[in-house]
Design a protein around this nucleic acid. Structure first.
Lengths: 204, 204, 204, 204
DNA sequence: AGCTAAGCGAGACGGTACGTCCAGTCTTTCG
DNA sequence: CGAAAGACTGGACGTACCGTCTCGCTTAGCT
């Protein structure tokens, strides 16, 4: 009965927002201008995302969906690592699977615009509860991927039975985000490899 | 030769800004109101710090000088862990020293206002270079404290000779900041203890 | 198609601005306060008038439309003097008509707030072209009223054929504005009467 | 007993202020910048003139002293017209003397910067009493010159005994200022001549 | 010759207004 | 009802001047 939403607008807005976010950061994304550029009314944006923050979350979620848990540039699809870990539970395979995931994170988060964005989202998380949970869901995906690998590792006997999975995840993901947000140190596959080795050294 | 700046104003402004920053976060700090509260003209603030960001940097720098590595609320002074590590280099002592530092971090960073602030600073770091380096210096202090302990541990034989100190620090500090900024999980001494144990498990 | 401007706001803002302008002069008109008084956001004012000057122009233009040549407080309508001059062209009637107009000017311009305003507008005229032409249009109305009378006087033979109408107007209006702006001398009907007599003495 | 003021500073400040005033108008004259340009402390300016307005008045007064009542570009010195009028009181000589004075006014006030300045002073007059009287004194000089001529004209029988001198002056000076401030019409010697003729026509 | 009051430069300071920028909401009219 | 257009509230930001003040130094002229 009612006029249906123009789904094309969704895509256009997201695309433009994504580009602007990467190019100019959170503050550089101005809803007014975004709408103008896309050729859409500001209301159309706000009807879909109640807040600038929500829109930003959507953009990032889109990036994840687009490239799997590994983030843009990554290559580990959900089913793929499942298969790998199912096939073999021994330490080498666990390391390989983790390195793939962590490496994907590194490649995804290394670029400066992405770092800025992650920082801004972390800040937004603190003030805005609703957005907070959205952002949490975002981060949670990669966390779950790591958890899956670790738990299969435990199940397969490659890792200690009393391994604190939470803690191991904090160390892995934490080190990466620490470099992203706090030290600004570079992130690449080599670092991912070393990090995984180091953490597994205490998890065997 | 000219009338000197009223250094008391500097102090009052910084104090008020610090308090507001902790209580209300970056956005809660409004220059106009700050000036009013301190009883100073807005121009007096802007004469000292050309931008809100510059002021925030000063506040943080002040925290550093004031409280050492532990940050506001923390209590780990340089001499304390120095003494501990000097006294004995074996693993138990290393663990104790690290737990003290990491526990200090946890207690300092756990409160919500502090989390918000850290996140906002991490974000500001990305855009504003000047502020960035100031923030970096801030974080660097704790990092140095951890490094010192680790290196003495290596020297004393308590830790592996080929231990990647950088990596170990990333794991320790990273896990903490990860919880502060990304997962929002609580931080306390128990966590600090477990974290240190876990990391040392792979460092022996 | 879009939401139309609230025309009531226009009116309210103009009214409040007009009152403030008369009571407190140009500098006494503060946009921030104006908006507050009217109960409107400052942006709503700036959307309509990009500058304080533009707003002042609008106010003045409003006065024109509202009160005719006589200005605020004046009372000489177009038809009144028209009738008079139509009825008889001889000198006495010309003098009466002119005295009415000039007297209206005197009464309108005599009060201190009006003097201040006229002076401020004369000053603004010089810097701001847009505002200048608006102000010019304002002054022009009275000038035209005087010119009409003089020209009918010439046509009816009451005044010299070679009378320089421009010059006579300069003398009449000039004397009034001179007192308004330069000497500060009082203006009333008696003065208007004497002035008209004096100028007509040389115009017969 | 104390160190005397540096009179050279007075001159330099006045000169710079004069130039700026003519080039950039009242608002373009910024005390801070003036002091910087002259190479003098702001206090040195304010010690001499308590207010920007006072300084501006001084500048204008300087112009008068410099060139006699006729203003910059004029040439009728006090003694000159005295001599002229003393020599002969008949109408032709009165007209000549008045034309000289009024012509001087025209030449002095015609340039756009001067118009702006006069307008700004007229506005300042209204708000600032102290400055008002200074400005009044300024205008009064030319007025006095005209009055002198008219009164001698009356004494010599060239002008009517019952001539209202005030009114005649208002007409003469008023027409000029009216063009300066209100209509923006050009002013030159031809206009001065016509104006004097017209006013004298009713004064005989 | 030395004391001292004032001049001077430099620039901090309080105060006040301006005009700008955005986020998010509300109000129309059209399809 | 969805969409386009854009008005509206609300609040902060940084800028610009004015006129006052406080330093420390310099200098003329009285004692």
């Amino acid at each position: 009965m009612a006029r249906p939403r123009n789904t094309e607008s969704d895509a256009l807005i997201l695309a433009a927002a994504a580009e602007t976010l990467l190019r100019s950061g959170y503050d550089g994304l101005v809803i007014d201008e975004l709408a103008r550029v896309v050729g859409v009314a500001k209301t159309t944006v706000y009807r879909r995302w109640p807040t600038k923050n929500h829109l930003v979350v959507s953009v990032i979620a889109g990036w994840q969906d687009e490239v799997g848990v590994a983030g843009p540039g990554g290559m580990v699809g959900g089913q793929a690592d499942g298969t790998i870990v199912d096939a073999a539970g021994d330490l080498a395979h666990i390391a390989t699977a983790l390195t793939a995931i962590v490496g994907g994170m590194c490649r995804a988060l290394d670029p400066a615009p992405m770092r800025r964005l992650v920082a801004e989202l972390a800040a937004a998380r603190m003030t805005d509860d609703e957005l907070g949970s959205s952002v949490d869901r975002l981060w949670a995906e990669r966390r779950a991927a790591i958890a899956a690998v670790l738990e299969r590792g435990i199940a397969s006997g490659g890792l200690r039975h009393d391994l604190d999975v939470e803690l191991a995840m904090d160390e892995l993901a934490g080190a990466v985000y620490y470099r992203v947000l706090i030290t600004g140190a570079p992130l690449d596959d080599r670092y991912a490899h070393a990090l995984v080795q180091s953490v597994l050294a205490g998890a065997r």
